[in-house]
């Protein structure tokens, strides 16, 4: 089951890289977060780690539902451009994404015997981080860049869960708090832009 959700996690992120519509991108982000939340719940149950279970529940509520809904609401209210064509052509992405995956598996090879869990999970976490960076880089619009940033947080969460068997609860909660603050800042920046455009 763990492998299944990690597979879903990676698949949703890769699909997000090819998406050209904003709402579809939010959907992929939501599914990505949902697979992460369910993964944390399963691993938390296996390790009997209450902190990880709480993190999983918060992930499902905040990242899988709250943030995508809020970003959709924001994009409707501010009439953000919903056509988000990536700058990197699809045929190039098809070559680039497997190359990143192979590279990260190669990169994670020396640390395979040093981590507690399955080293492949760590490789997938690192590749997710690179793919999130790619998502940020390949778009000029703000909204996909924000999703890229949020996906990067998801990749780090996955790394924390798989490489260390769960980060301390305090850190997990702090990361959630910072994520919410990031959303507040994004909201203010977009609102301010709207006011400036309104004045003009």
């Amino acid at each position: 089951m763990v492998e299944f959700f990690i597979g879903i996690f990676l698949a949703t992120l890769i699909t997000a890289l090819f998406t050209t519509r904003l709402y579809r991108l939010l959907l992929w982000y939501s599914l990505n977060s949902m697979s992460l939340g369910l993964l944390a719940l399963i691993l938390g149950g296996q390790f009997e780690d209450r902190a990880m279970i709480i993190s999983g529940i918060i992930t499902l509520i905040v990242k899988a539902m709250g943030i995508p809904y809020f970003l959709k609401y924001l994009s409707e209210r501010l009439s953000l451009n919903r056509q988000i064509s990536p700058n990197i052509k699809i045929q190039h992405s098809i070559i680039l994404i497997p190359a990143i995956l192979v590279f990260t598996f190669y990169l994670a090879e020396p640390i395979s015997h040093m981590v507690q869990g399955n080293s492949n999970y760590v490789a997938i976490s690192i590749s997710s981080l690179f793919l999130s960076l790619l998502l940020m880089m390949e778009h000029t619009n703000i909204a996909p860049k924000i999703i890229g940033f949020l996906s990067m947080e998801n990749a780090l969460f996955l790394l924390g869960t798989t490489a260390t068997g769960g980060m301390p609860m305090l850190v997990e909660l702090g990361i959630f708090f910072d994520l919410l603050m990031a959303i507040v800042v994004v909201n203010l920046l977009l609102k301010n832009e709207e006011e400036v455009e309104g004045d003009a």
Binding site: L170, G174, D178, M181, V185
Partner: peptide
Amino acid sequence: MGIFWIGLEMATLS
């Protein structure tokens, strides 16, 4: 290290 990061992130975002 975690609190260090949380504080730094908060300062960065603000």
